[in-house]
C-alpha cells in the first residue's frame, strides 16, 4: 500500500473514531447539559482496559498491567466500554447529585486530573508513564493481515462500529428518553416539576456517553497498538468539545461534520503535510492554535454549529398521521375549542 493510502485510511480511522467520541460527549453535553470536562478520562479508561484485556499475561512482557486475559475483539472493546460506564456511575454519584454546571465542571476537571495522576504513577495498573504497548492487532491472525493491510481493514471495522453506534444513538435521541434528556438540559427544575428525576436521567446519560468514550478509546489503542498518558492530557477533552461545537451540538450529523473538520482536517491531516522549510515541527504546533481560533469564531458567529440541532419533525410526522386518523373524531369538537392567538 502506498504512503498516500496509508495516510488516507489513518484519517478515515480518526474520522470514525472521533465521530463515536463526539456522539458520546454530545449525549452528555448537547442533549443533557452535563459539562463533562473529564470526558477524555473515560476515553483513557476504555483504551487501557481494552488494551490490558487484549494483552497476554504480563509476566515476561516487560510491562506491568492488570488483567492480561488475551481477550479477542469485540469482547475486549465491550469490556472497555462497560468499565468506562461503571466508572461513570461512581463519578456521577460523587459529582452529579448535588452540583450543577460550573461547579460540576470544576469537580469533573479535578477528577480527571486525579485519574491522570493515579494511572501515570501507579505502575502496576497500566504500566505507569510508559503506558501499554504491543497491544495485538485485532483479527490480524484470522484474516492474515500485515502491518500495512491492517490499517485499511481496521479503518473499515471502525466505520462499521461507528455506523452501529450511530444507529443506537439515533434511536435513543429520537425516543421519549432523548426528549427527556433535552428537557433536563433546558431546565432541570421544570423537568423535576414534571415528575422526571433529573439525577436518574443524568446518570443514564453519563453511562451511555462513557460507554461511547470507552469504545472510542478501545479502538484507538487497538489501531495504534499503544497508549500512554501523553495521549490523554486533560486538554484533549477540549478537542472533543471543539468537534461537537463546530459540528453542531445536539445533532449526530453535526458530530460527523465536526469530526471531519476538527479532528481529521485540522488535527491529523497537518501531521502528513510536508514540513515548512526552516521550521521543522511547526505545523504540528499550529494545528492546536487553529482549532482554538476556529472554536472562538464558531462561538461568536455560529454558536449552533455547522449543522444545527434540528426541530424534531418526527413528532410532527406522528402528529400529522394522528391528525389524519383523528379527523373524524376531532371535527365535532373543533368548534368548541378556543381559537388560537
Amino acid at each position: 500500500m502506498s504512503a498516500f493510502w496509508y495516510y488516507v485510511f489513518t484519517l478515515v480511522f480518526f474520522l470514525f473514531d472521533y465521530f463515536i467520541l463526539a456522539m458520546g460527549l454530545n449525549i452528555q453535553y448537547g442533549e443533557t447539559g452535563i459539562l463533562n470536562f473529564a470526558y477524555i478520562g473515560f476515553v483513557a479508561i476504555g483504551a487501557y482496559v481494552t488494551g490490558a484485556a487484549s494483552l497476554p499475561n504480563s509476566a515476561g512482557t516487560g510491562q506491568q498491567y492488570i488483567m492480561g486475559w488475551g481477550l479477542p475483539f469485540p469482547f475486549n472493546l465491550l469490556l472497555g466500554g462497560l468499565v468506562a460506564s461503571a466508572v461513570a456511575v461512581l463519578v456521577a454519584l460523587i459529582a452529579l447529585r448535588r452540583l450543577r454546571t460550573d461547579y460540576l465542571a470544576m469537580v469533573l476537571v479535578s477528577l480527571s486530573l486525579v485519574l491522570y495522576d493515579v494511572i501515570n504513577n501507579y505502575v502496576p495498573l497500566f504500566n505507569g508513564a510508559d503506558g501499554l504497548y504491543n497491544v495485538p492487532q485485532p483479527m490480524a491472525g484470522i484474516f492474515h493481515l500485515t502491518t500495512n493491510s491492517f490499517i485499511p481493514f481496521f479503518a473499515v471495522v471502525t466505520g462499521l462500529v461507528a455506523l452501529l453506534m450511530w444507529f443506537i444513538m439515533s434511536r435513543i435521541m429520537n425516543s421519549p428518553l432523548g426528549r427527556t434528556f433535552r428537557a433536563i438540559r433546558d431546565d432541570d427544575g421544570v423537568a423535576g416539576a414534571l415528575g422526571k428525576n433529573p439525577f436518574g436521567y443524568k446518570l443514564t446519560s453519563m453511562i451511555i456517553g462513557a460507554f461511547y468514550a470507552g469504545v472510542g478509546g478501545g479502538l484507538i489503542i487497538q489501531f495504534g497498538g499503544s497508549f500512554n498518558p501523553t495521549a490523554w492530557l486533560p486538554g484533549e477533552t477540549f478537542v472533543v468539545f471543539a468537534v461537537i461545537i463546530v459540528g453542531g451540538v445536539g445533532n449526530n450529523v453535526g458530530m460527523l461534520v465536526g469530526a471531519l473538520l476538527v479532528e481529521t482536517l485540522l488535527i491529523h491531516l497537518p501531521a502528513f503535510l510536508p514540513e515548512i522549510p526552516g521550521h521543522p515541527g511547526l505545523i504540528e504546533y499550529i494545528d492546536t492554535m487553529v482549532v482554538g481560533v476556529l472554536l472562538m469564531v464558531m462561538l461568536w458567529f455560529r454558536p449552533q454549529g455547522v449543522v444545527p440541532e434540528r426541530v424534531r419533525k418526527s413528532a410532527g410526522m406522528l402528529a400529522d398521521r394522528a391528525r389524519g386518523r383523528g379527523r373524524q373524531l376531532t371535527t365535532a369538537s373543533e368548534g368548541q375549542g378556543k381559537s388560537g392567538e
Partner: peptide, 8 residues
C-alpha cells in the same frame, strides 16, 4: 423548555 417544540 425553550429548545423543545411546543408539542414536545
Amino acid at each position: 423548555l425553550g429548545g423543545l417544540t411546543v408539542l414536545e
